[in-house]
Each structure stands twice: as structure tokens, then as C-alpha cells.
């Protein structure tokens, strides 16, 4: 019974231990640290692209994309050039042997 009473008193005393609590002070440099933090953040934001490119993984990835784009562009250009060359060859061949002129066989089909 007495123990119960003592326990209750202990609990109430602990619950009331926040009575008269004072404000805790942040460190003396709180404001200056905050200003520096803000300045750093603003600087980072303004140069958003550059620090990303400076990271090796991103730089390599960007380089690879450029390389792939270059290879694709060059190969498609070469293919076009080859196609053009072969079509001019065919045209000159057709002209040389008069393959372009229509003959009797073409116009008068046997019925």
C-alpha cells in the first residue's frame, strides 16, 4: 500500500519535471551557418548542370550517347550515299543499253 503510494508520487513528480522549463539556446553560430547554407544552396542551384556533368558516371554516359548518335548519323549518311551511287550506276547502265525505251513487246501484249 505504502509502496503504491510512493510509486504514484514518483510518477507524478517525473511527469511534472518539465515544470519551469526554460528555452534552450541554439549555438552562437546558428545564423551564420544558416546564411552559408543558403548561399551554398543558391550557388548549387545556379550551376545545376555543371556539377552533374563533372560526375564521372554522368560524363561517361553523356559521352557514350554522343558517340552512339555520331555512329548512327554517319552510318545512315553512308547508306544514303551508297544507295544514291548504285541508283546512278543503274541509270547509266539502263541508258547505255536503252532499257528505258518501251518496245513493241511491252505495248502489244498477246491476248
Amino acid at each position: 500500500m505504502r509502496d503504491e503510494q510512493k510509486l504514484r508520487e514518483e510518477i507524478e513528480a517525473t511527469l511534472n519535471s518539465l515544470e519551469g522549463i526554460q528555452c534552450a539556446e541554439p549555438s552562437y553560430y546558428f545564423k551564420s551557418k544558416l546564411i552559408t547554407r543558403l548561399e551554398n544552396k543558391t550557388a548549387k542551384k545556379s550551376s545545376w548542370l555543371f556539377p552533374h556533368l563533372a560526375r564521372p558516371s554522368i560524363a561517361i554516359a553523356v559521352l557514350l550517347v554522343f558517340l552512339i548518335l555520331n555512329v548512327v548519323t554517319i552510318s545512315s549518311l553512308l547508306r544514303q550515299k551508297n544507295q544514291r551511287a548504285s541508283s546512278t550506276e543503274l541509270q547509266s547502265f539502263a541508258q547505255e543499253y536503252n532499257l528505258g525505251t518501251t518496245t513493241l513487246y511491252d505495248t502489244n501484249t498477246i491476248k
Binding site: T14, S17, I21, Q22
Partner: peptide, 16 residues
């Protein structure tokens, strides 16, 4: 230990 707690309450406040 909250820095603003009164000296006599420090120990109890840690438990709280």
C-alpha cells in the same frame, strides 16, 4: 538532458 530543465528536475526529466 534538455538544457532548459531546472537543476533539481534533470534526473527525472531524462526518464520522462
Amino acid at each position: 538532458e534538455h538544457p532548459g530543465i531546472l537543476m533539481e528536475n534533470k534526473e527525472r526529466s531524462v526518464i520522462l
